[in-house]
Design a binder for these strands. Structure first.
Lengths: 246, 246
DNA sequence: GAGCAATGTGTCTTCACAACACTACCAAAT
DNA sequence: ATTTGGTAGTGTTGTGAAGACACATTGCTC
């Protein structure tokens, strides 16, 4: 407890949220399949940071490498640095021994979360993942290392943030219906919200533009399509608004 | 931009807030007086992390060494890792050259903020500070490295958090008056708050116990003394309350 | 053309918040 | 003993946001 540590590894990990108009998803990678340990080897994508890279840049690089997307919503969750964070689980230790020269080396990670439009891309298997795929957040119960904890922190921060800024638009297609937006908020808060109250509140913000277009091909009354109005949003956030929490 | 970095230094930095019933203060150290650069050599206390120490522990260690206090309110702000963060200012570079073997080495820091009862202690000069003292937050305009940015982030987070949890009690003496609490909120939000509305709201939370004691020796009508009621607070936060923002 | 499935709409009540001014009390000075 | 200065302490009213709540509309499918 007394020796100075000069040189931990530092990584970034990205909790990537997606939404398919039904459920909230998180992008997970299979960081190498260990027989018998498959369940807990799913992880959130991440990588060690480079030499001259700042932390946000590293996170964007990871996102780009894995999904091909740039310019997406990104926010830091915080640093996770328990000295034992990557070696607590037997499955993790085995895996580390199998791929690293110094499996016991300490790694401090800086976690981010980001919001992406799911249909916009297919996760590619990349240098640091054999495979990647979307998992419904509600069905994720265990992850490698401390990634479950990181996921939960990210989710909490998303909930907090979405009350203050309408960042949910990053999860929806460019054109969307109020029902879809409504559903998104219900998924994030994990509770039912009154339809009429929701519509009134969100419309009163004046950050939506009605496109005067309707859904086509749906087996029911088609809905109006809206898009997010950045101009009005900017005005609004300059004036300062808090709380359109439900 | 392509070489992997294996080994940055990792430090913790602590934004320590105090309140003297008049103003909000922050504890700064003089990290070594460079002639001619005195103004911008004030910094927030911090240290490199130890080998087997997790991040929170490191932050608590720094706080203890500097102030002698344990068990104080502590919360992570986030990680700051611009590769150039400690070498942007000429004054910083000079200072680094004067005390470090590898002045150009990268240091990533994890910032914390904490709330302490100012009169409870005198900051001691410690291993990492020639001198330490309280500075009114409103008068701090420039600090070493990126510490001004860190301070501002901490302040923002404090503002956000105090709307949701009554953590302000950590800044007040055990027995305090409503006016003092009122003043504290005004200082943190940096704006006037209506006295009657404030009292009503805070009392409705039922987290204060009236001690049936009065101030003595004050040259005006003495005020009732209150203390914070932890029991009721716990109940309240379990039930879940947000927002006693003003 | 009947049925299905989701859209879209209005009112009332309740609650929280903002604005606002005066009296009560203690100590110190005269 | 009286005055003065300074802070403590208290209630009401108006306004606007939020929650609860039910039914008619539309387009597609069969």
């Amino acid at each position: 407890m007394n020796k100075k540590e000069l040189n931990p590894y530092v990584s970034v990990d990205c909790v990537i949220f997606g939404f398919d108009l039904e459920q909230l998803y998180v992008l997970l990678i299979d960081s190498g399949s260990m027989e018998g340990y498959k369940q807990s080897r799913m992880a959130v994508p991440g990588d060690l940071i480079y030499d001259t890279e700042n932390l946000d840049t590293a996170a964007r690089r990871v996102l780009k490498e894995l999904t091909g997307i740039e310019n997406i919503y990104l926010e830091q969750i915080g640093a996770f640095g328990d000295p034992d964070r990557i070696g607590k689980k037997a499955s993790d230790r085995k895996w580390l021994e199998s791929i690293r020269a110094m499996p016991e080396a300490r790694v401090i990670t800086v976690a981010y979360y980001s919001l992406v439009r799911m249909p916009n891309f297919n996760p590619k298997a990349s240098s640091f993942a054999k495979s990647a795929g979307w998992a419904p957040v509600s069905e994720v119960h265990d992850l490698a290392f401390d990634h479950y904890e990181i996921l939960q922190s990210g989710l909490e921060q998303l909930k907090r943030k979405i009350k203050i800024q309408p960042i949910g638009f990053n999860l929806l297609p460019e054109k969307f219906t109020l029902s879809q937006l409504h559903k998104l908020y219900e998924c994030i808060y994990d509770k039912a919200l009154d339809k009429r109250n929701f519509r009134r509140k969100i419309l009163n913000l004046n950050i939506l533009t009605n496109l005067d277009e309707k859904q086509i091909g749906v087996p029911h009354k088609p809905s109006q399509l809206f898009k997010f109005n950045e101009e009005n949003y900017k005005k609004l956030s300059e004036e300062g608004f808090d709380n359109f929490g439900f």
